[in-house]
Design a protein around this nucleic acid. Sequence first.
DNA 1: CTTACTGTACCGGCTGGACGGTCTTGTCAA
DNA 2: TTGACAAGACCGTCCAGCCGGTACAGTAAG
Lengths: 177, 177
Amino acid sequence: MRVRRANSREKILAAAADVAREAGPGSLSLEAVASRAGVSKGGLLYNFPTKAKLMQGLVESYLSDFQKALEARAAEAGHESVLSAYIKLSADDCEQPKPSASWMFSAIAEDPEFLTPIKAFKRQLFERLKEETDDLGSLLVCFLAIEGMRSMNLFDSDVLSQDERELLVASLLKIAG
Amino acid sequence: MRVRRANSREKILAAAADVAREAGPGSLSLEAVASRAGVSKGGLLYNFPTKAKLMQGLVESYLSDFQKALEARAAEAGHESVLSAYIKLSADDCEQPKPSASWMFSAIAEDPEFLTPIKAFKRQLFERLKEETDDLGSLLVCFLAIEGMRSMNLFDSDVLSQDERELLVASLLKIAG
DNA sequence: CTTACTGTACCGGCTGGACGGTCTTGTCAA
DNA sequence: TTGACAAGACCGTCCAGCCGGTACAGTAAG
């Protein structure tokens, strides 16, 4: 059946994320991804002519997903600020015991430049948050603490307990006002 | 000259860190490290019989250096708390434009388990900080914000400007009390 | 309807190169 | 002479990317 054509790209991207998460970022080979996606190596290379293109695809889909999720949160009633939305979104993201973005390590190994769009996105987000507050110090503390939380999740770190995470989020929301 | 023997291990560890930083974490091969250290591959494998042992060596030396630096700071006059010492130490560490620990990405690619000692160390540090304060919320915010700062440095992120970093550190020291 | 042609989506064996680790052959200090 | 240590050629493995196929949908001429 050829009907499934349109989904191949997304299936492959999801498979890549899965492989990196479960087999480790060092095991993200084209064959592993293809097999996981239920596609042949040739098929993978048809959709992503290069491993670099695959990484790029992962970054782009990650960024657009994040953007969408943040916008959705910010639009929800009851959010007094984008910062609060960002805090809550990150808290939820970090609830998952397994990091959803281990592929980033593979991308860095391939070429650190792949993270440039992510850095740009973060800077953009920070600028946006700056506009809605006059307390830059508190914003910085919140923004970096979220970064720390995300980083710990990415590294699959169990340094913080569930309770501590909740207290942290509560404290951040308080600071955010 | 054989005289250099005793330093070989440290020279190799330093070379490995350099290679990861300058050529990218994906380019940390035994040959590259050996060449950078001014040592042959055989010589490298004599000191570190396995790439895994080399990674382990990097982790251990990183941890012991960090420990030493923190102890030194904490012992300095004028520090009212270990947390302040940790903040200031991290601020200085993150002053360097180039991340000094890119090798961590290579280690993760090799095997995520290599970071276990680092997580344990962090948890230990956190417990220690918990003992000297009764405001757990503030401690969490500070601890995570520092983590965020270190993470940004590790990812070679230029999201924050110099001024912003200084304001952040000042805010953290204020929260730390 | 049928045959021939075209472009798209996908398949999987192959190869060339890189890399980790071994092994043989030094080399130098004692 | 000997033995601790170093050198680097070499081997096996793994993997990215290539390439010659296959299958099928659409189109269009006969």
